[in-house]
């Protein structure tokens, strides 16, 4: 993969095994220890068997960046990832409201928001996922031509869809 190409993490939720090694890889990389709630990618399991890794989709119009009154969010032109300036961030939560999928979340201990930064171009979560052969999170070199915003959905919405895919009619009573 060339260093200057924009990357995106494609997500195939039906393939998520629930191993949460994406969370482990993310927090070991960013926090130096295993810290599930400090992960930029969080695996929700509102229904067992329907595990949903929830992470930033790098919306084409970056509503979170637009919404920030403190200019704490910016875009890395190289990777297309959202970058959080933890000094400027006040944890006001406006970026979370602006996000179509309510993806950002505040660090459980510190006072700033957590948004996936694509690990500067080498996402550890996708690496863990593809190394194990699951390919739920997979780095793709070229961003898809459709709006990334369409992929920014809440865990509840995603759970409903995947549950119906897996369980058919039964899904309704499980959610």
């Amino acid at each position: 993969m060339s260093k200057n190409s924009k990357i995106w993490i494609s997500r195939d939720y039906t393939r998520c095994t629930g191993c949460r090694r994406c969370e482990i890889a993310c927090t070991l990389h960013h926090e130096g220890q295993i810290w599930p709630e400090a992960s930029r990618v969080r695996v929700f399991m509102l229904v067992p068997g329907v595990e949903i890794p929830h992470l930033c989709t790098q919306c084409t119009d970056y509503p979170c960046v637009e919404a920030c009154p403190f200019e704490a969010l910016s875009v890395n032109e190289e990777t297309s990832a959202v970058i959080v300036n933890s000094e400027k961030c006040t944890a006001c939560g406006l970026c979370i409201k602006a996000c179509p999928g309510k993806i950002p979340h505040i660090h459980p201990k510190e006072n700033y928001v957590l948004i996936c930064d694509l690990c500067g171009g080498d996402p550890q979560c996708a690496k863990a996922c593809t190394e194990a052969g699951y390919n739920c999170l997979r780095v793709v070199e070229e961003a898809p031509s459709i709006s990334h915003n369409l992929f920014a959905r809440t865990p509840e919405e995603l759970t409903k869809d995947v549950a119906e895919n897996l369980f058919g009619e039964k899904a309704e009573e499980l959610i």
Binding site: T14, T17, G18, C19, R20, R21, I24, G49, A132, G133, Y134, L166, F167, G168, K170
Partner: peptide, 22 residues
């Protein structure tokens, strides 16, 4: 089997499967 690899926190074996009758 609707999921052929299903596991718990940190597991890289994920030997469990999710089965449902349709």
């Amino acid at each position: 089997w609707v999921k052929r690899y299903w596991g718990d926190y940190g597991c890289a074996i994920t030997c469990m499967k999710l089965a449902t009758v349709k």
